[in-house]
C-alpha cells in the first residue's frame, strides 16, 4: 500500500506530471476565458507535517480567498484555489471589466464569478487527468470563503489526520502576464486515492 510516508521519487514525479498535465489544461481554459496570457509553474508536490501546514503560503493569518471543491469518483479528493484578496479582486475585475477600488468587499455576484472560474478550471484539470489515467473524476459545486489561510487550508486536510501525521498537496501556481495576479491551485488526493492514481498510471 502506497502512503505519503513511503512515496518514492518515481511516485513523486508521476504525481507532479499529473498535476502538470491537469494544470496545463486548466491554464488554457482560464486563458481563453480571460483573453489573457496565463503562465504556470511546474507543480510542486508538498508533503508537510500537519502541525506545519499553516506556515506555508505566507502564514496562517494571511487573508485569502479560497474556493473549495470535492472530487468524487474513482480517486476522491479535494481541490482548492487560493488567491490573495487583491488578486481575487483583479480576477473579478478582468472578467467583469469593472474597476473595483482596493478596499471594497467582494460582493455576492463577484463570489459567483470566482466560483465559476474555479469550476471551469477544475473541469479542465480533472478532464485531462481522467483522460490520462482512465479514472472517473467529477467535482462538486464550488464553495467560497474569504478568511485566514490557515482556517481554509486546514479544513481541507482533515482526512489526512485519520491516517497519519502528514498531508500532501499538489500545488500549481499560475500567474497572469499582463496584470499582477497570481493564484494557487491545489489538488489534494484523499489518502486512499494515492495508490489508485499511481496504479492507473502503472507505477
Amino acid at each position: 500500500m502506497v502512503t505519503i510516508e513511503n512515496l518514492s521519487n518515481v511516485h513523486l514525479d508521476v504525481l507532479k506530471e499529473i498535476g502538470n498535465i491537469g494544470a496545463g489544461h486548466a491554464a488554457t481554459a482560464l486563458s481563453q476565458l480571460m483573453s489573457e496570457r496565463i503562465e504556470m509553474t511546474v507543480p510542486n508536490v508538498s508533503i508537510l507535517t500537519l502541525s506545519k501546514v499553516s506556515d506555508f503560503l505566507g502564514g496562517p493569518e494571511k487573508i485569502v480567498v479560497g474556493i473549495y471543491m470535492k472530487v468524487f469518483g474513482d480517486a476522491p479528493g479535494k481541490i482548492i484555489f487560493l488567491f490573495n484578496y487583491d488578486d481575487a479582486q483583479t480576477l473579478v475585475k478582468i472578467v467583469n471589466s469593472k474597476t473595483l477600488p482596493g478596499d471594497v468587499e467582494i460582493e455576492d455576484l463577484d463570489q459567483s464569478v470566482l466560483q465559476e472560474i474555479s469550476n471551469i478550471m477544475t473541469g479542465a484539470y480533472l478532464n485531462a487527468i481522467s483522460r490520462l489515467t482512465g479514472l472517473n473524476m467529477l467535482s462538486s459545486v464550488p464553495a467560497y470563503a474569504c478568511d485566514m489561510a490557515g482556517a481554509i487550508i486546514n479544513s481541507a486536510l482533515l482526512d489526512f489526520g485519520m491516517v497519519g501525521d502528514y498531508a500532501m498537496l499538489i500545488d500549481t501556481q499560475f500567474k497572469m502576464t499582463q496584470e499582477k495576479m497570481d493564484g494557487h491551485f491545489f489538488l489534494i488526493p484523499d489518502p486512499g486515492s494515492l495508490q489508485v492514481i499511481l496504479e492507473a498510471i502503472g507505477v
Binding site: 506545519k52 499553516s54 493569518e61 490557515g150 481554509i152 486546514n154 479544513s155 486536510l157
Partner: peptide
C-alpha cells in the same frame, strides 16, 4: 499572537506562567 509558543494542528503543550500559547488560523 505571533510571539507566543505556536501550537500547530494536532499539537498539544502544557506549561506555566509567564508563557503564552497560541494557535493561528483555526477553522474547524
Amino acid at each position: 499572537f505571533v510571539d507566543a509558543i505556536q501550537i500547530g494542528m494536532a499539537e498539544l503543550k502544557v506549561t506555566q506562567a509567564p508563557e503564552k500559547l497560541a494557535s493561528l488560523g483555526l477553522g474547524s
